[in-house]
Design a protein around this nucleic acid. Sequence first.
DNA 1: TATGAATGAGGTTTCATTCAT
DNA 2: TATGAATGAAACCTCATTCAT
Lengths: 209, 209, 209, 209
Amino acid sequence: MGIYERKQREKEQRKIGIINAARKVFSNKGFNTATIEEIAMEAELSPGTLYLYFKGKEELHTSLSIEILKHLADEIQKVVGQDISAEEKIKRFCDVFIDMYEYDSNILINLFHLQSGETLKNLSDEFLQQIKTHSTMAHGAMVDVIKEGIDQGIFIEEHPVVLADILWSSYAGVVLWVDSKRVLNSQKDFVKSTLKTAFKIILKGLKKK
Amino acid sequence: MGIYERKQREKEQRKIGIINAARKVFSNKGFNTATIEEIAMEAELSPGTLYLYFKGKEELHTSLSIEILKHLADEIQKVVGQDISAEEKIKRFCDVFIDMYEYDSNILINLFHLQSGETLKNLSDEFLQQIKTHSTMAHGAMVDVIKEGIDQGIFIEEHPVVLADILWSSYAGVVLWVDSKRVLNSQKDFVKSTLKTAFKIILKGLKKK
Amino acid sequence: MGIYERKQREKEQRKIGIINAARKVFSNKGFNTATIEEIAMEAELSPGTLYLYFKGKEELHTSLSIEILKHLADEIQKVVGQDISAEEKIKRFCDVFIDMYEYDSNILINLFHLQSGETLKNLSDEFLQQIKTHSTMAHGAMVDVIKEGIDQGIFIEEHPVVLADILWSSYAGVVLWVDSKRVLNSQKDFVKSTLKTAFKIILKGLKKK
Amino acid sequence: MGIYERKQREKEQRKIGIINAARKVFSNKGFNTATIEEIAMEAELSPGTLYLYFKGKEELHTSLSIEILKHLADEIQKVVGQDISAEEKIKRFCDVFIDMYEYDSNILINLFHLQSGETLKNLSDEFLQQIKTHSTMAHGAMVDVIKEGIDQGIFIEEHPVVLADILWSSYAGVVLWVDSKRVLNSQKDFVKSTLKTAFKIILKGLKKK
DNA sequence: TATGAATGAGGTTTCATTCAT
DNA sequence: TATGAATGAAACCTCATTCAT
């Protein structure tokens, strides 16, 4: 490996380190309450250093979200490539959400928050484009599976994009909502089981007969 | 009406005026970016005056969300009281979401944002309690309808609370997600039609056979 | 006087107070070294308050310079209106510079610094316009006097604008240079006497014979 | 040449390279806005390396100014040695200014900025001494020529130092002022022609009759 | 000698909140 | 009750400087 590649790699590592620190702090405190200083401390760096890798707080937060989105898109695409039925794939999508939620519940929450209002405005075109790309990828994979199901005469004949939207947003909605109930009522974590039930209902709703 | 009552009433009116101003500003800018001064200007009051009615920015935002939640709960409960089938009620719930979205798309978005992470933490017990109350009410109404359906042997025999969660969060998720797609891709507004399709699918999934 | 006028007046007074504080601090420390906090302390206000009246450090500094320029333009125009010979008016211009220098030597220095390189770039159009206006006024007055002299056959027949430039810039140059010698060599203040000699030489140079 | 001398020479060359880079950057951006990193890039070196040759930004800037001053002093002294009349020498001084302005207009501007307030304060004694030395040299040369003229009965009998001050500062003032007009009004460059006219006027003013 | 990533002090700026009127 | 000027804490961010390599 040349010296340039090593440097590049180190730089990438450092970026990941910072993003991981940011993940922890943003998860605990939320965007407003989190401070750059805190993230720097978590990353065991000085505040100034963060600015060598990210233009500012906003960009750091967005980068984190994109990282998550990328991961989600990857996992979903893996499912599409598998040699299983469309129905089974829909179930696996559900598992992907569950896995991510179990790995770090805040990851998903963060992501879904990115995808609406407040955050989307004031985003640089570059980042907006990245989000679109990965989002389209993840969503496109879902659309493909739906299409597959429709073509095989298994799913109802609605517009596949709409069905994928419903699938995605129901899963996302369940995560947000059930997780918030958990926080609000300090109850047990029902996200997983609720997601599974949601899957069953929606799958049944999707099927032709 | 006594003088005290009138005063009380006026105060309430003023509070509503402020909350409406806050709704506009928070909708456009989000919690962070919105400033008290802007809200005051929108309400045609001075910043100081807002503090006579609300303890601070946080409380104002929460009050707004509660207001919305209250409205939603009301609308949902109206549905429960109607003399129609459980199935039809589920459909009406969908209409309630659509109506609110059409009245002010940001209203719903705002509400769903309340329901997680960032905002819920650091909330005074009093407000947490109010949120719980109204939330429980709205949600409870849904649970009742689900129960009704189960008792009548129309719906599948899952835990009614879970089913209501799924119903609620799917609707909410669709609004958030499809609305964000609208913003991201500057496309037409498919929230209404997608919500309707979602309803059909979920209803089909809910039904026993 | 109406309440609005009074408010406006008070606001203007406050602005002047801040500019005066800024004058002291900028004079002592220069633009870089001076801090907003220091100026605020000098003005017996909090840092934040300064931002109610000026957009930032840059604008504050520019406002100060414009204030000075305005004053200089006023004084010079007064001279033009007087019922004395063109020759005498040129001498009075010299006195105006001397007066301003004696009132606060840093005032003039500051002004001349505004008028070149570093500061002029990055200036908002609004301020650039104001500077142009006042600058043109002051300079135009000088041009008028020169023209007067030429028309009366007293002064050499060069382009009046060029002659006014030379007059102005020689005066300014002397102030900058002799003052810097004073600082560098901790010598006595020869600005006044040197300016007077400069006046004599230039006047002689300007005259036709 | 021994190895030590060569090293010394190389070091000197490197210093000059850095100073030239600094000249460009300081010229374009001014002292505040210019950054060490930019200068390093311009010099095709790393920021750290600059600190091997200069103690810091301040010293670098001062070194640049001294370099310019040294050059100016050299050119002026060359004039003094020539076998021409005092009157002609004064004219040549004007040419020196014009040449430097034409070579790099920012050079002179930069120099004149050194000579007051902000920059002079906070300067180490060592540098202050160097500035004094070269300044005295340049200025002394002018004084000599003036004296020459007075002794030959050509120039008026004012204190030679004062006359040299006026000469120097008028030239400097014209450069600063006319150049700033150029920037402000985006007009043609009249520095050269205005300087020439200034020379004529002042020379006429200096002459005994 | 040269590097350039990291530092961190310290500046500018914002804005929720207060309080005299 | 209403005001809105003033506050000042606290955040973001910059960049001259250092130091391990």
